[in-house]
Design a protein around this nucleic acid. Sequence first.
RNA 1: AGUCGUUUAGCUCAGUUGGUUAGAGCAUCUCCCUUACAAGGAGAGGGUCUGGGGUUCGAAUCCCUAAACGACUACCA
Length: 878
Amino acid sequence: MEKAYTPEIHDAKWQKFWDTKEIEKPEVSHAAHPEPSPESFVVMMPPPNVTGVLHQGHALMLTLEDTLVRWERMRGKKTLYLPGTDHASIAVQMQVVKHLASQGIEYKSLGREKFLEECWKWIEEYRPRIYGQVKAMGVSCDWSRVKFTMDEDLNKAVKRAFVDFYKKGHVYRAQKLINWCPKSLTVLSDLEVIFEEREGKLWHIKYPLVENPSEGLVVATTRPETLLGDVAVAVHPDDERYKKWIGKKLLLPFTKREIPIIADSFVEKDFGSGVVKITPAHDFTDFDVGTRHKLELINIFTPDAKIVKGLPQEAAQFADMDRFVARKKIVQLLQDSGHLVKEEAYKTRIGISERGGVPVEPYLSYQWFCKMDSMAQAVSNDLDKGDFKFVPHEFHNQFKRWMEGIRDWCISRQLWWGHAIPAFHCQDCQHVEVTESDLEECPKCKSKNLKPDPDVLDTWFSSGLWPFSTLGWPEKTSDMKEFYPTQVLETGFDILFFWVARMLMMGKELTGQLPFTRIYMHPLVRDEDGQKMSKSKGNTIDPLEIMKTVGADSLRMTLNALCVQGRDLRLSEDRIDTYRNFINKVWNATKFVLMDESVKEIKKVEPFDLPSRWILEGLDNCAFRVNKAWEEFRMQEAAEDVYHFVWNDFCDWFLEISKTDRKKYQPVLLFVLSETLKLMHPLCPHVTEELWHALPGVSADDSLSLQCFPKGKASGELRDFEVLKKFIVELRAVRNESKTPLSKVVNLYVPELTAQEKSLFETNALWIQSLGKGAVHLSEDFSGPSRLLTTSSIQAGATLSFKVPAAELVDVKEEKDRIKKELAQLNGYIGGLKSKLGNESFVARAPEQVVNTEKAKLKEAEEKFQKLNENLKQLDTL
RNA sequence: AGUCGUUUAGCUCAGUUGGUUAGAGCAUCUCCCUUACAAGGAGAGGGUCUGGGGUUCGAAUCCCUAAACGACUACCA
């Protein structure tokens, strides 16, 4: 065998092997499995952006999903892991626009069709790259079923969903105030607006009274430029300061319009001046006020957020001015004319366009919307009923609250790259027809003068259909029948509302079934200082780089081991090294086992002595816990469990013991190793596949991926063995502390052993001496200079005392005090147990098993108490 | 402002329903090239479990309270 695992050679080799064996195809793997289960297990890969680059978030997602997928496949379930990519409408359009601009091409000049061609070119270039990066992780997804959200069949699904929603009245077209991105020139959904706290200013501006211009009201605003669109000023109806003003008119600066003073209780009396300017066309709150008071809507901005032409009076001078330039100018002029009363620093939350990076503008516009309340209600009810669950549970409430406050979803976008909205506008009678097919003439007026809707759909509309559009919906395909609904959705919480909520609602509405029953939210990957990884900060740990240097398995193992619920994941090179070392350890352990070639076949072995029983039970216990942990998505627990079983139990103890009688233990070594490789396979598939193929009797044609995953069973710890282990640790410590070199034997005199303990020592003397590097003499001899050690912590009732000659003397008084303290503690413990057992209602109510354990604990404690007492007496004689 | 989360060794974190001596990795110190592995082995040191109260025989764990940090939500112009 080679000196170490070389990922750069073997990772790709095994990926190719799995590919040719088609282990990731549900039909193939299920048929090949020795114990196929009737259940299926389906995970839809959250599709990465088609032009994206693999980052740690993806790496974590792929790792966790593939770990679960491989595990379930090995458990015999019919397992489908379906990969794909998302067309990322706005993100990709922005990229292509930028790319074209860099070549001096203005995208609009190309026209829609040519531009879309450019997009496809762009995608054909990038898509293989992200697929290649996904594959490098060693994920076992079925590439024969790979989907792209702009595939023809998925486009069909999108159309069907849209038309279905339209017919049911969920989708409608309306003029509303929406979030407008002046940079990318499209509407955005509420979720695509990122709120940021920024240092701003609060300007206090005086609006003069029409009937008496020397008097006036002072409004406070963070956006003085919007005063051009003011239609009223509002005060609180109970505000004594302003009661007499209500109904009077103010003269608006610049436009010289007369606007009324209205009363509305939304105004906070204590904030600013207690007077609010109302600009219904440019502020969401004001829009509501405007609706309540039937106020006019005055739009003052062009789509790219410049002041419109044709405003009256002095306002005309601002035409074509950018909103921020206009703000400066207006403040300046107000100051010059004495309208500006005061200017104060103010922290304000402003909405930034997720893609454009500029402040969004509340803007009045005709858009397509999707009504959400009834769909949200249905899903919310299902959550209450427990039809689906969040892991971790914390997301339950957050989700519910969001569903309750849900607002209609603006689904149209003024972009070219994306799914076209399946609607036609009749240019003659203005009728809008929504249809899946191409339309020749207007069904109302028979006009042939039709125009397709110019907009595309929000990316997340097609993503929302992902769990079933990928299986062929709306066609009743066999995949749809077999694999829908899916079982687990694994994703990051940042897209809980963007994506998860929409899949649930759309899935339930369109298919009548929830698309999945368990939602596992993985943590955010941060760097070792807890910072978000970002290229601009330069703190990224590039998964591709890691895989190149230490292999996919080390990365997968690390991510699993660090992945706990409810806390961010801090990734560091140190941690990766730890698990790289682990893989090396497994490699070397296998090398050791294979050095003996006497056993040609791996068979299940029965325990024949204490160490073999201990390791076989340990294996069962470990397998049992791993299964349980994965059932509940406790990824860290499973990984750590395997780690410690392999390193501490198998390598540190059993391997060492086996050296004392290699022939005897070889079958056990082989069996345990092969089972362990199965256990590890979902975590680090490449290296385990490589090692498994090196085992005797394994056919080159077989894959570890299709072996039975160890079921394991729980059993208590093997006390006899633990006692001896503890004993050996003490033996080594004595050697270390007394600085006795290996060439010299440390002799331990072990007094006061029970007959049972004595025989335990005798039968296992060989390996005790070998591992403890010392001789053990069973003796009652207390004479000579001695050091007293107690291993009372081994187990209650198994207290051992032994002496080491020629070592320093320990303070007997200290030891006595320690025992006394322990006795006192134990006394309290016993008292508690007694009172608990004496409590009739406890005995009556608690399950018998619990009462029995408590009784056993009491017995054990009492025995220990006695033993300690004896020890104390013995110390008195010294 | 509201909701939720976090606070445990020098660092990063585990700790299942309350139970005897609170664990791991990394880092530190000592010893060891013992033919699987120095990317290793054997040991050691290191903790008022954020502070304060309470329940209990017993609390890192349950309750109350305070603080710090973080996340999400929200129409204070």
